[in-house]
Structure formats: C-alpha cells, structure tokens
C-alpha cells in the first residue's frame, strides 16, 4: 500500500479525457469513448476498476485493450491479478461487503486468465502534463489504491500535502464513483493552479436520480487546467437486462435504472449521503 515505483509518463497534452471505474459497464464505455473522440480530446486514460457490478467483465477489458486506451490499476485489477479473496474496495459494513463479495466472485470467475495477467502488469500511477500543469493519475489516492477521496471528507491541507509529496499540480483519481473537483491554490508566480479532479465513474450513475454516467475532460488553460464533466447517456435498459440474465442482484439493476445508489452507501460521508435517495 505504500507508494510504488510502478509509474509511467504518458507525455504532454492539451486536452484529454479521464475515465473512472467502468465496473463492467462496457456499453457506457463504448459510448463514452465515442463521445470523447467527438469532443476532440488528444487522448483518453482509464483509471482502474474495470470489473464489478455489471455483466460480462471480459467485454470491458477487450474494449480497453483493443482501443489502446492507456490504463492504470485499480484495487479490482490488483485483487483479480493476484488471486485475492475479495475486491479490497475498503467497505466497512457487512451488507456492503456482502454485495461487494457477490460482484467479486462473479467478476473473477468470468475474467480470462490472460486479462488477469495484463491487469497485474498495469502501472499504478500515470503522469502527464497539460500545458504547464503536472498531472498525476492514480486510482484512489497516490498513497493507497483504495482510499476514498470524497469532496466533503478531504481537507485542503491533506490535498496540499499529497500534491507536495508526489510533486504534482493536479491529482486525478476515481474510486468513489462521484465526480468532483476543487482548486486549492490559484496560479502564482509562474506556477499553475493546483487541485484535485475526481473523475467519477462510467460504471454506475452518480447517485443523483439520473441514469447517465460521467467522465471528465481536462484542458490546459491560462494558468492551469479547465475541468469539465461530461454525462454519458447509453442503453441502460439493455445493461439491466443483461445483468438480470447473468443473475446479478436486483439492487444493482435498480441503481442502473433509477440513478440512485442502493448498495455501498455506508461508506459515504454525511454530505454525500444526504444528497442521495437511500
């Protein structure tokens, strides 16, 4: 869990898209990819947690690998590739763990060995630059692959420390499934603005009663980076039907069809919890 050297440098860019947890939602992944390209990004990056929750996990990995999207490892890829007993999502409630367990067993038994090997070789961190802004991509946080960085539970002081410790200006992460971003220091003396971008998830909606899922676009701009969150409509009815055919829990399908989370709720801080329906 300590910072690892498994890190790659992707290069310099002007405008890029970041995909958060796909959770086997291969239908949304394909839509998001097409949408990102139509929005003229230079590159797309995927930040881990490709499996869980949805059906046919191999379809997501096939798509990612065939499209050549640079990927980093999430806790799911770490767990699947080293034959762990659970997903290491970091839940603390038995009901949440019960559902996490169902997804993990389903996903693990249906992920091809060659995909698992590929997951094991993925880098943990990816760096790039957007104009003059140094960007570090990780899954949960750069310190812990399964750390939840929620808007209301992450202090500015902690963010500042992460940026300093890891020598970056913008931290890009996922894992929580809720998208948010915050700049904690303005551009100053030739230094770009500094902050965080949690890109949300393509795998399930953002607990807001809308069925779309989200990704983020970041673009170099005067003094820093401009961030935009993009909603992705997709055939969620089809996804729910496939989930049913695969015997996945009714609660998961409900989330896909209503846009409200039904599981993995106990980990939410007070403010994020109050915004949801359950």
């Amino acid at each position: 869990m300590l910072p690892t050297a498994r890190e790659t440098f992707a290069g310099g860019f002007r405008r890029v898209a970041f995909f958060g947890g796909v959770y086997s939602n291969y239908l949304a992944l394909a839509e998001a990819h097409a949408l990102a390209r139509s929005l003229k990004v230079d590159a797309v990056f995927a930040l881990g947690d490709f499996g869980a929750f949805g059906p046919h996990p191999d379809r997501t990995v096939d798509f990612l690998r065939e499209s050549g999207i640079p990927c980093i490892q999430g806790n799911y890829e770490e767990a699947l590739s080293d034959a762990a007993e659970d997903c290491r999502c970091g839940y603390t409630d038995p009901r949440d763990n019960h559902y996490a367990r169902l997804s993990f067993d389903y996903t693990s038994s249906r992920t091809s060995p060659h995909h698992k090997a590929w997951m094991g070789d993925l880098p943990r961190h990816l760096r790039l630059t957007l104009g003059g802004t140094r960007v570090l991509c990780c899954h949960g946080s750069p310190r812990r692959i399964n750390e939840f960085l929620w808007a209301s539970s992450t202090s500015d002081a902690y963010l500042r420390r992460l940026l300093d410790e890891y020598g970056t200006d913008l931290l890009v992460c996922t894992h929580t499934g809720l998208h948010w971003s915050r700049m904690i220091a303005p551009a100053q003396g030739g230094r770009p603005a500094r902050g965080i971008l949690n890109v949300g998830a393509l795998g399930r909606p953002a607990n807001n009663g809308r069925t779309e899922v989200w990704f983020a676009i970041a673009e170099a701009s005067e003094g820093g980076v401009r961030v935009e969150f993009v909603p992705v409509p997709y055939d969620h009815g089809r996804l729910a039907r496939e989930m049913e055919a695969e015997g996945l829990p009714r609660e998961f399908r409900e989330t896909i069809l209503t846009g409200w989370w039904t599981t993995c709720l106990e980990i939410l801080p007070a403010k994020e919890r109050a915004a949801g329906r359950f």
Partner: peptide
C-alpha cells in the same frame, strides 16, 4: 435513509470464533 452499521463483536475473540453461517466469515476474512 438510516445509516446503520452493524459491527461484529471484534474486540472479543470468543465472539468471532463462535461465528458461523451466512457470509460473516467472508467479512472477517
């Protein structure tokens, strides 16, 4: 939307050894 967290009786070793049945082993694992 109650936020109810059920905690296994972790601090008592005997309690965890007593455990069997539904998925609790999984949680402790």
């Amino acid at each position: 939307r109650p936020r109810l967290k059920v905690m296994p009786l972790l601090r008592l070793g005997a309690e965890t050894e007593r455990t069997r049945g539904y998925g609790e082993e999984e949680t402790l694992a």
